[in-house]
Nucleic acid binder design. Structure first.
Lengths: 204, 204
DNA sequence: GTCTATATGTGGATAGAC
DNA sequence: GTCTATCCACATATAGAC
């Protein structure tokens, strides 16, 4: 089944479930604005203007700027987790790891705007909303830890420090959201490079 | 010479050169505040209050909040570059890489507050100030690229994609600033783990 | 060099018409 | 559901006394 989800890696995120269209324009405008300037530096006027509306119209669709961030963060976290789970396929822990790192890395490059919001705006969430996305973050981490753990169990992977190596593998992909711009190469190639580097980190 | 700079890795940053003491209290207060909340969410009142002063007193020592950020960013970037250069020692490219990754990673953990400001607040700098720190950033990148390049030249390291691997190695250490807190283990041990992982990435 | 007081701008959010 | 107009809080920065 390896490679079956390649289309999911490179296809744009789908927002049709956000209705009506005005709410969707606000959401996508907010993603761009938050990714460019950060949550705190983004004004509701900026978001509304990107959606072609007056500032007041925003509050018909969202009760606050933070709620807009939360919707983005929750959806983005879930999308990242889905990509990772869909990529967890292969005949060995090593193959599964390659596939997951490839997909997770490519997702962070392809969707670097929403990924930036997901990874760098956690501090702007309310405690309740942060707790909700933290649950998804733990599932993401557990997904990587499981495959490494499976590799240790069957002796096919060499992992001295399981939590430390889990974090390092995740970290490599996540940091893509910080530095990636389209001129730095295409997401698929980056995914393949990082899959190779990650496998080398843990090979026996 | 390996290990000679261990004290530099774990010693606190030295701020004696910032005079008078009030200016230094403002600077260290700003580092803590920027690291906790981000530049945009930090108020001059918060910074002044951490330094035990009224908001107005800040402007005797710094002309703006941005200037305070710039001083922190410039000094932090230079400190990170110095750590990397001091660690560039060893008899082979592999040893030099290990030493550099160990020191650079441990620095980002030990000094995660200033490292967070250095790595995540670039967008808040004026274009002129950003250009100045970007020069230091290029030197940091060049330092890693050089050792990988030397390893390729003498056949001791296996690097398929030199710019991509350079970025990946740097990225792993830099991302430590995002997630590190003291309860996640000690900086020296993390440095050793990451040195091992980086070496595995490029070993023949 | 530090204070109190304040000028000036701006941002999140609301009121009420259409 | 969108608009114009605006409230109100707060933030950067300055003025002027001590």
């Amino acid at each position: 089944m390896h490679g079956v989800n390649v289309s999911a890696i490179t296809s744009p995120l789908v927002w049709e479930h956000v209705q009506p269209a005005a709410a969707r324009r606000l959401l996508t405008g907010a993603i761009d604005a938050f990714a460019e300037r950060g949550f705190q530096a983004t004004t509701t006027r900026d978001i509304a203007s990107r959606a072609g509306m007056s500032p007041a119209a925003l509050y018909v669709h969202y009760p606050s700027k933070e709620r807009l961030l939360f919707e983005i963060s929750r959806y983005g976290h879930q999308a990242a987790l889905d990509v990772l789970r869909d990529a967890d396929s292969g005949d060995s822990p090593a193959e599964r790891l390659r596939s997951m790192v490839e997909a997770f890395t490519a997702w962070h490059a392809e969707h670097h705007t929403i990924a930036r919001v997901v990874q760098y705006e956690l501090a702007a969430l309310t405690p309740e909303h942060l707790a909700e996305v933290a649950t998804i973050r733990r599932a993401i981490s557990a997904q990587i830890e499981q495959v490494l753990s499976d590799g240790v169990a069957d002796g096919s992977l060499a992992v001295d420090d399981l939590p430390g190596t889990t974090l390092a593998v995740l970290s490599l992909s996540i940091d893509v959201a910080r530095w990636y711009t389209p001129h730095r190469g295409d997401p698929a190639a980056l995914g393949k490079l990082y899959a190779e580097l990650a496998q080398r980190m843990v090979q026996t």
